[in-house]
Design a protein around this nucleic acid. Structure first.
Lengths: 352, 352
DNA sequence: CTGAAAGCGCTTACAG
DNA sequence: CTGAAAGCGCTTACAG
C-alpha cells in the first residue's frame, strides 16, 4: 500500500537494504546473511543442515536466524527447488473412523519431520481421486500417500509423470517395487469366516455395503474359507452398494435374516453395530440364534450388547510405517522393505 | 539431470525458448503467450479473469492454454502475490464426527472456488493450535477457518500480524466485526434441559467429558434452565476432563446413577450412546427410570434403544456459510453479516 | 568450505 | 487494453 519509499513509521527497515515498492517486510536469507557477514548461500546451506559449511559457522548462523525470527519462505523454496514441504494424503472417507486413525498417525510422523499433510477425500471414487491429483500435484507435494492400489488410468499417468515418491496404504501389492504398507484383506476375511465355521456355523451370510476393492477382497476371503469347508453358497452374499452406516446395518440384518442364517459377517463394524442393535430391537438372540462378526474393530464395538467379534486392523501402525517409508523415499534413501505386511488380529467377543 | 543443452530425445522443447540448465519442462505463461503472440502479462490477466483484456483475446488465450495443457504454478503465484490458494482449517478432533461433517461442507465450497483446504487438528489444545499456526502461516494461506473463539495470546498475535482473513466456527462472538458462524451453545444447552424439566424431571445430572469451551457453555445453559426452575443443584454436575467415547459414557452413567437422578444430559452424543448401552446392560429402564439426552445428533443416535433425544447442530450449514463468508473476505468484498447464527433443533426421541 | 550469477514462474507497479 | 521491467525469496549449478 505504501507506494513511496520515503521515511515511514514502520518497524525497522533492515539496515542497509533499500526497500523496493514490493517490499514485504519479511526477514529473508539476505538479512540473516548480512547479520553474519556471509553470503545467503551459506546461510541457506547451514539452515538446511548441509554438510559443507564450517562447523562453527552453523551455530552462529542458527543463532542469528533465531534472533531475527527468520522463517524460510515455503513458496520461494518450492519454486526454486521444484518441491514443497507438503505431503498429499488421499483417503476414501473420513466418516469411517478407520481413516481418521490412519491420518493421525501419518500426521504425527510427517509433522515431526517438517512436512505438512495435505489431506484429500476421494469418497471411494477413482474419478474424484484423479481430480484431486490433478488439482494438488501442481502444488508439487514432496510425497504421496494413497489409499489402495487401484487408481484410474488418468491418475496412473499423472503419478508416473510427476515422479513424486508414493506409498500405498491398506493393501499389499503383488508387483515388486511398489511401495505399500498394509495387510491381506483376503486372509483377514477368510480368518474371521473360519472362526465362525469353527463355532459350528454353516449358513454364514456375508453382509456388505460400500463395495470398494478392499471389501471385495474380504468377500473373496469369505468365499475361500467357505469353499474349504465345502459350504459355499452364493445366495448368501448380500452386496449392497450404499455407503455403510448403522442404519444400513439394520436393513442388512433384516435382509440377511430372510436367508435363515446361523451367522453373519459384516464387512465393516459400523453396519455390524447397527445389526446388533436391530437384533436387540427384534429380540433376536445373538449369538444364540445367529452369530455376528464385523471388521476393523472400530470405536464402540467393545461396548455393544453383546460385544462384537471382529478383526482389529493396524491402521495406526500402517500410517506410521507408511509415513516413515515415504520419508526415506523423499530423502532418496535406500529402502530395504518396500512392501510391509502388518497383519491383523482376530478379536473374539461375545457376539460369536 | 541433463546438464547439457544439446539435442535430447525429450518431448518437444518449446520452440524458440532456449533451455537453461534448470529447465523443468513445465508449460509456462511464456509458452502460452508466445503461442498467442501476446505478452505473458496479458495471458496472466486473461486467465485470472481480470477485466482489462480485449474480449476476443480472452477466449483465444484460454483455448491456447487448454491446448498446451498450461497449469499455473501455485508456488510462483504465491511468491509473487504473497498469498497461496490454500485455506487453513483448524478443528479440534476428527474422531468427533461433528467436525468431519463440518470439513466436508467447507471443502465442497472452497474446492469449487479454486481453493484447497489445508486441515489441521488441534486436539482441543490451544498450544497445539498455536504451533500449527506458526507452522502453517508461512505457507501464506489465503484464508483461515478456526474452530471457536478462544486462542492463546501467542496465536492471537500471529493472527493479527498475518492479516489473513479469518472466520470462526461453531461459536458466536460478542465483539462486532469478528467474523463467525455458529449458534448459541448456551441456549441449546438450556433448551434441552428445559425439555427434560417439562417432562417432570427435577434431578437432572449434567454429564460431560472433554471440557472444552463449548461444553462449558452448554453447562452454563443447563444451569440457567435449572435456576429458572428453581432446582439447580451443584452436586449434580459431572465434569470429567477425559476425551469423550462410548466407554466413558458408560462410566459417566454409573457415576450419575449414584446421584439418584431422574434424568441425565450428556454434553455429546457419543457418551450418551455409551450410557444408553450401559443402561441396557444394567437393565435400567430409559426413560421410565431415568431420561437421557445428548448433544449434536451424531450418527447412530437415532438407532439406539431407545433412540436418543438430542440437539441437532447445523455443522454442514456452518461449514458452508463460513466458507462462503471467507470467500467474500478473501476477495475483499463487503460482507454485510459477519455474525451468522444458524440455530439448532431439539430432536425429541424416545429416551426422554 | 564459500559465493556470485542465474533462474524457478509468476504478479506488482508503472507507463503508455 | 497492453507490455517491459523488476521483483517475490529461495536453490541450482558452477567456479574457486
Amino acid at each position: 500500500m505504501a507506494h513511496s519509499s520515503s521515511e515511514s513509521p514502520l518497524p525497522a527497515p533492515a539496515a542497509g537494504r533499500t526497500r523496493s515498492s514490493r517490499a514485504t517486510g519479511r526477514i529473508t536469507l539476505a538479512d540473516v546473511a548480512q547479520a553474519c557477514g556471509v553470503s545467503a548461500m551459506t546461510v541457506s546451506r547451514a539452515l538446511r543442515g548441509e554438510r559443507r559449511v564450517a562447523p562453527g559457522l552453523v551455530e552462529k548462523i542458527r543463532a542469528a536466524a533465531d534472533e531475527l525470527g527468520y522463517v524460510p519462505d515455503p513458496a520461494a523454496r518450492a519454486l526454486a527447488s521444484q518441491k514443497s514441504s507438503q505431503v498429499l494424503v488421499l483417503v476414501p472417507m473420513l466418516s469411517n473412523t478407520l481413516f481418521v486413525d490412519l491420518l493421525e498417525a501419518v500426521h504425527q510422523v510427517l509433522f515431526k519431520a517438517g512436512y505438512q499433510a495435505l489431506i484429500g477425500v476421494t469418497h471411494y471414487d477413482t474419478a474424484e481421486e484423479e481430480l484431486l491429483l490433478r488439482t494438488y500435484l501442481p502444488l508439487r507435494p514432496a510425497g504421496l500417500l494413497l489409499t489402495g492400489l487401484n487408481h484410474s488410468p488418468g491418475a496412473e499417468k499423472l503419478l508416473a509423470a510427476s515422479k513424486v515418491p508414493c506409498v500405498h496404504l491398506m493393501e499389499l501389492s503383488d508387483r515388486a517395487g511398489t511401495p505399500c504398507v498394509g495387510f491381506s484383506q483376503t486372509d483377514a476375511g477368510a480368518d474371521i469366516t473360519r472362526h465362525l465355521l469353527a463355532g459350528g456355523r454353516r449358513r454364514i451370510v456375508f453382509c456388505a455395503g460400500q463395495l470398494d476393492v478392499r471389501v471385495m477382497q474380504r468377500a473373496e476371503g469369505y468365499r475361500n474359507a467357505l469353499r474349504e469347508a465345502g459350504v459355499y453358497d452364493q445366495t448368501l452374499e448380500l452386496l449392497w452398494p450404499q455407503p455403510t452406516s448403522m442404519a444400513l446395518g439394520a436393513q442388512l440384518f433384516n435382509a440377511a435374516l430372510a436367508l435363515k442364517p446361523d451367522a453373519m459377517f459384516f464387512c465393516n463394524d459400523d453396519i455390524a453395530q447397527g445389526a446388533l442393535l436391530e437384533a436387540l430391537r427384534l429380540g433376536i438372540d445373538v449369538p444364540g440364534q445367529v452369530a455376528l462378526a464385523g471388521f476393523n474393530d472400530l470405536a464402540g464395538s467393545d461396548q455393544m450388547l453383546p460385544p462384537l467379534t471382529t478383526i482389529r486392523t493396524p491402521r495406526q501402525s500402517i500410517g506410521r510405517e507408511a509415513a516413515q517409508m515415504l520419508l526415506q523415499l523423499m530423502r532418496g534413501d535406500e529402502v530395504e522393505q518396500t512392501r510391509i505386511d502388518l497383519g491383523y488380529e482376530l478379536i473374539v467377543r461375545k457376539s460369536s
